[in-house]
Protein backbone atom coordinates (compact mmCIF):
# COMPACT_ATOMS: atom_id res chain seq x y z
CA UNK A 1 0.00 0.00 0.00
CA UNK A 2 1.34 3.39 -0.96
CA UNK A 3 2.06 5.80 1.88
CA UNK A 4 0.18 9.06 1.33
CA UNK A 5 0.87 12.55 2.67
CA UNK A 6 -0.51 15.95 1.71
CA UNK A 7 -0.28 19.59 2.74
CA UNK A 8 -2.53 22.28 1.29
CA UNK A 9 -1.70 25.96 1.01
CA UNK A 10 1.96 25.90 2.02
CA UNK A 11 4.17 28.97 1.79
CA UNK A 12 7.48 28.53 -0.01
CA UNK A 13 10.00 31.29 -0.67
CA UNK A 14 11.47 29.59 -3.73
CA UNK A 15 11.51 26.28 -5.62
CA UNK A 16 14.07 24.76 -3.24
CA UNK A 17 11.82 25.40 -0.24
CA UNK A 18 8.84 23.99 -2.15
CA UNK A 19 10.74 20.82 -3.13
CA UNK A 20 11.91 20.34 0.46
CA UNK A 21 8.36 20.72 1.79
CA UNK A 22 6.99 18.14 -0.63
CA UNK A 23 9.78 15.68 0.17
CA UNK A 24 9.59 16.38 3.93
CA UNK A 25 6.00 15.17 3.82
CA UNK A 26 7.34 11.77 2.72
CA UNK A 27 9.90 11.82 5.55
CA UNK A 28 7.24 12.71 8.11
CA UNK A 29 5.05 9.88 6.82
CA UNK A 30 7.92 7.43 7.32
CA UNK A 31 8.37 6.62 3.63
CA UNK A 32 11.72 8.38 3.14
CA UNK A 33 14.77 9.06 5.28
CA UNK A 34 15.92 12.49 6.46
CA UNK A 35 18.41 12.91 3.59
CA UNK A 36 15.75 12.58 0.92
CA UNK A 37 14.62 16.24 0.64
CA UNK A 38 18.12 17.55 -0.09
CA UNK A 39 18.61 14.76 -2.64
CA UNK A 40 15.43 15.95 -4.37
CA UNK A 41 16.81 19.51 -4.50
CA UNK A 42 20.11 18.20 -5.89
CA UNK A 43 18.20 16.33 -8.60
CA UNK A 44 17.00 19.66 -9.97
CA UNK A 45 20.31 21.47 -9.60
CA UNK A 46 22.11 18.61 -11.37
CA UNK A 47 19.58 17.70 -14.07
CA UNK A 48 17.65 20.93 -14.57
CA UNK A 49 14.00 21.85 -14.08
CA UNK A 50 12.62 19.03 -16.25
CA UNK A 51 10.67 17.70 -13.25
CA UNK A 52 8.18 20.47 -14.02
CA UNK A 53 6.30 18.14 -16.33
CA UNK A 54 3.18 20.14 -17.00
CA UNK A 55 1.82 23.64 -16.48
CA UNK A 56 2.33 24.50 -12.80
CA UNK A 57 3.09 20.90 -11.80
CA UNK A 58 6.40 19.51 -10.52
CA UNK A 59 7.15 15.83 -9.91
CA UNK A 60 9.59 15.83 -7.00
CA UNK A 61 11.78 12.79 -6.47
CA UNK A 62 15.29 11.44 -6.04
CA UNK A 63 16.75 7.97 -6.52
CA UNK A 64 15.87 4.93 -4.37
CA UNK A 65 19.36 4.95 -2.84
CA UNK A 66 18.87 8.58 -1.73
CA UNK A 67 16.55 7.48 1.05
CA UNK A 68 13.47 5.82 -0.36
CA UNK A 69 12.27 3.35 2.29
CA UNK A 70 8.75 2.62 1.06
CA UNK A 71 6.64 3.67 -1.88
CA UNK A 72 5.22 7.04 -0.93
CA UNK A 73 3.34 9.78 -2.73
CA UNK A 74 2.84 13.30 -1.35
CA UNK A 75 1.02 16.32 -2.71
CA UNK A 76 1.69 19.92 -1.69
CA UNK A 77 -0.14 22.99 -2.97
CA UNK A 78 1.35 26.46 -2.65
CA UNK A 79 -0.44 29.70 -1.85
CA UNK A 80 2.09 31.58 -3.97
CA UNK A 81 3.52 29.80 -7.02
CA UNK A 82 7.30 29.51 -7.40
CA UNK A 83 9.49 29.57 -10.51
CA UNK A 84 11.75 26.61 -11.31
CA UNK A 85 13.31 28.21 -14.38
CA UNK A 86 11.32 25.97 -16.73
CA UNK A 87 10.90 27.51 -20.20
CA UNK A 88 7.20 26.62 -20.56
CA UNK A 89 5.61 25.27 -17.38
CA UNK A 90 6.46 27.88 -14.72
CA UNK A 91 5.24 28.98 -12.23
CA UNK A 92 4.53 25.91 -10.09
CA UNK A 93 1.74 25.74 -7.52
CA UNK A 94 1.34 21.95 -7.23
CA UNK A 95 4.10 19.51 -6.29
CA UNK A 96 3.73 15.76 -6.29
CA UNK A 97 6.61 13.99 -4.57
CA UNK A 98 7.33 10.31 -4.56
CA UNK A 99 9.89 7.92 -3.15
CA UNK A 100 10.56 4.26 -3.77
CA UNK A 101 12.83 1.61 -2.25
CA UNK A 102 13.93 0.31 -5.67
CA UNK A 103 13.65 1.20 -9.33
CA UNK A 104 10.43 -0.80 -9.90
CA UNK A 105 8.31 -0.61 -6.74
CA UNK A 106 6.84 2.83 -7.58
CA UNK A 107 5.75 2.03 -11.12
CA UNK A 108 2.20 0.92 -10.28
CA UNK A 109 1.53 3.90 -8.00
CA UNK A 110 3.06 6.45 -10.35
CA UNK A 111 1.27 5.02 -13.38
CA UNK A 112 -1.98 5.31 -11.47
CA UNK A 113 -1.17 8.94 -10.61
CA UNK A 114 -0.38 9.62 -14.28
CA UNK A 115 -3.74 8.23 -15.37
CA UNK A 116 -5.51 10.28 -12.68
CA UNK A 117 -3.66 13.42 -13.78
CA UNK A 118 -4.86 12.77 -17.32
CA UNK A 119 -8.41 12.90 -16.00
CA UNK A 120 -8.26 16.06 -13.92
CA UNK A 121 -6.46 15.10 -10.70
CA UNK A 122 -4.31 18.27 -10.73
CA UNK A 123 -7.41 20.49 -10.70
CA UNK A 124 -8.98 18.42 -7.91
CA UNK A 125 -5.81 18.67 -5.82
CA UNK A 126 -5.58 22.43 -6.38
CA UNK A 127 -9.21 22.81 -5.28
CA UNK A 128 -8.56 21.18 -1.89
CA UNK A 129 -8.57 23.80 0.85
CA UNK A 130 -7.03 21.85 3.72
CA UNK A 131 -4.75 18.88 4.41
CA UNK A 132 -7.62 16.45 4.97
CA UNK A 133 -9.30 17.29 1.68
CA UNK A 134 -6.00 17.06 -0.16
CA UNK A 135 -5.18 13.71 1.47
CA UNK A 136 -8.62 12.33 0.63
CA UNK A 137 -8.34 13.49 -3.00
CA UNK A 138 -4.91 11.90 -3.36
CA UNK A 139 -6.05 8.67 -1.68
CA UNK A 140 -9.04 8.45 -4.05
CA UNK A 141 -6.61 8.61 -6.97
CA UNK A 142 -4.62 5.70 -5.54
CA UNK A 143 -7.33 3.34 -4.31
CA UNK A 144 -5.65 -0.01 -4.88
CA UNK A 145 -1.91 0.57 -5.10
Amino acid sequence: MTTIAAHAGKDATDWRAAVRQAAEALVAAGAASADYPEACVRMVTEHGPYIVLGPGLALVHARPEDGGNKVGVAAVTLTTPVAFGHPDNDPVDLLIAFCTPDSDAHIAALSTVAKALASGLAERLRAATNDDELTTTLREALPSV
Binding site: M43, H47, Y50, I51, S111, V113, L117
Partner: peptide, 10 residues
Protein backbone atom coordinates in the same frame (compact mmCIF):
# COMPACT_ATOMS: atom_id res chain seq x y z
CA UNK B 1 14.00 12.42 -18.82
CA UNK B 2 16.98 13.15 -16.59
CA UNK B 3 16.78 10.13 -14.32
CA UNK B 4 14.42 7.80 -16.18
CA UNK B 5 12.07 6.84 -13.37
CA UNK B 6 9.64 9.70 -12.73
CA UNK B 7 8.84 12.19 -15.46
CA UNK B 8 9.59 9.74 -18.28
CA UNK B 9 7.28 7.17 -16.65
CA UNK B 10 4.49 9.77 -16.59
Amino acid sequence: CGVGMGSSLM
